[in-house]
Design a protein around this nucleic acid. Structure first.
Lengths: 331, 331
DNA sequence: CTGAAAGCGCTTACAG
DNA sequence: CTGAAAGCGCTTACAG
């Protein structure tokens, strides 16, 4: 079942291939009669342009790579961040007539594959999600001259247009809330320090605490529930007097909630808990989680728009979205 | 910064384009000296084949479309099923040298786009995730003659190779567990009935209940936490004596847990709750959720292998994976 | 407004 | 084992 070609349509409509091409691509310089009959032939034959042929001559692919740089450990975690970013960006890109090629880049092998793919001219641009500071891809793609953008400020030295949110400010506000409620020993469960989100949220925590003349108390996690629970247990062991904890994301806050419950500590009575992200699960914990809302959907949209806008037309190479404290019952 | 072509490599190595092509594609019929010098030229020039040109002549694309057929309402839900399936399938496909093109098909417009894309010869195969019974795509793609597979038994009349899990059996086992624990009034929060998972899990519930001579009590949800909470409230209002509920997925079970908490009912004391899927969140609820484990990762892997295996070499066109009851504290 | 022709960068029979 | 040549299905100056 061979697909019909331009040639076939031309023959059927009794015109040249050039004319069919013009009609198919919506050029206005074709007479109405002819356009009409070409359209009919296209319809009858069920013609759809062969994209490989088209992209060979136009040097465009209308495809964008969405690169998720997560190591295997986190690949099977169920952080909703990925679904949300991937699906929002995907839908927006599709609306713009672009296709989304999803690429995992969590190992050196996978990174090499991504690089080869981009070098092979498969895509017109690349979007980075969840970048780590050791990621060699941005540098490599910069050399290839392919446009790129990043979800969040890049964790590497390469300067990449990006959409971020005010991670540090959000963290500061969370801690200020805890301080304002009279909490004295405020700990944090920090995220991975090779990621911007992890770094900035920790920085915000430190700023707020130090501004109040208090000493920081930090345990690190890796953004999974499991690691949040483990960090909370360490915190409880190291500093039994802890009466509040700011977790760098909601998943870790959920883990902390569980560890607290198992240790017999009441929330927020004994220990107040604040998360970050405001994922849907935050409304269903017991007690419902106070958290900092990260505008994930908006941020993904902004990133896509950045990539779709030619550099000359961009108002700015970076957009920073505000975060907002959502007070529920856990703090 | 034009990328080097075959031509350039050939010139540099002092051989014909045909020879370079053979070396690049790993054919064994090239003399070692020549191969050596071609490889050197490739290296020096940083040559990477242009995939559009290659696919124009080979008629292959080495790309696979992963079609997620969710309507907007669920697009922004954070069901981890999608991340898991998308990322597992993606990683496996990449390992096989295929690229994954992610496509959302939640509206008629989006469906048309997918169809056009597949018709345009962009992909060698398509994988359906989360299919609804009204989906016109399987039929359309069948006509195009492009190979396809489905995650779960297809919800449409088209016969598609697929990897499924034993949804009905799992549901039966869940209800049997409840019956065995002496529960008398066992309700279910069913999933969408235009999806196979929703249908089969409800069927399993009915089979088990009727086998025990009990009357079914059904409220429907749409697989979101919110809908699970709402269904639980309706159940409580309609039948205050309900002492157990089987939710067709964990997210709805989590919603039910919240509604029960708000209604002052103890779990499992007053009402036992069983979910389905065993997503990571199930281990972090209060109390931890008893649920039926769906082998999501294995199922995604099986689906990929099905697509990658030529029809003639397949042992079967459908693989059904077992489910397992995971007993925690909620039932 | 329409067409003839060149060319995008590869692969693959076909000769030798 | 290697090369000359045709051809994959399009688009786009260039003429007219």
């Amino acid at each position: 079942m061979r697909r019909p070609t331009l040639e076939a349509v031309a023959a059927r409509a009794g015109v040249s291939r050039a004319t069919v091409s013009r009609v198919v691509n919506g050029e206005s310089t074709v007479g109405p009669r002819i356009r009409e009959s070409v359209l009919r032939a296209v319809e009858e034959l069920g013609y759809v342009p062969n994209s490989a042929a088209r992209s060979l001559v136009t040097q465009r692919t209308d495809s964008i790579a969405l690169v998720v740089s997560e190591p295997p450990t986190r690949v099977f975690s169920d952080d909703p961040l990925f679904s949300l970013v991937v699906r929002t960006a995907g839908a927006e890109l599709e609306r713009a007539g672009k296709q989304v090629v999803l690429m995992m880049a969590g190992s050196a092998e996978a990174q090499a594959r991504v690089q080869g793919y981009v070098a092979g001219g498969h895509v017109d641009g690349v979007m980075f999600v969840s970048m780590h500071s050791s990621d060699p891809l941005p540098e490599a793609i910069l050399r290839l001259g392919v446009p790129m953008v990043s979800y969040g400020r890049p964790a590497v030295a390469v300067d990449i247009p990006h959409a971020d949110n005010d991670n540090a400010g959000g963290a500061e506000r969370a801690v200020a809330h805890l301080l304002g409620a009279g909490r004295r020993r405020i700990a944090t469960i920090a995220g991975p320090q090779d990621m911007i989100g992890g770094q900035d949220r920790l920085a915000g925590y430190r700023t707020a605490l130090e501004g109040a003349g208090r000493r920081p108390l930090v345990e690190a996690g890796d953004f999974t529930r499991e690691s949040g629970a483990a960090a909370m247990r360490r915190l409880l062991a190291a500093e039994p007097s802890v009466d509040a904890v700011f977790a760098a994301n909601d998943l870790m806050a959920i883990g902390a909630l569980q560890a607290l419950r198992q240790a017999g500590r009441g929330v927020p009575g004994d220990v107040a808990v604040v998360g970050f992200d405001d994922i849907e699960a935050a409304r269903f914990t017991d007690p419902p989680l106070t958290t900092v809302r990260a505008p994930i959907v908006e941020q993904a949209g902004a990133m896509v728009r950045l990539l779709l806008t030619p550099p000359a037309d961009r108002e700015s190479e970076r957009v920073i979205l505000p975060t907002e404290l959502i007070v529920r019952d856990s703090a």
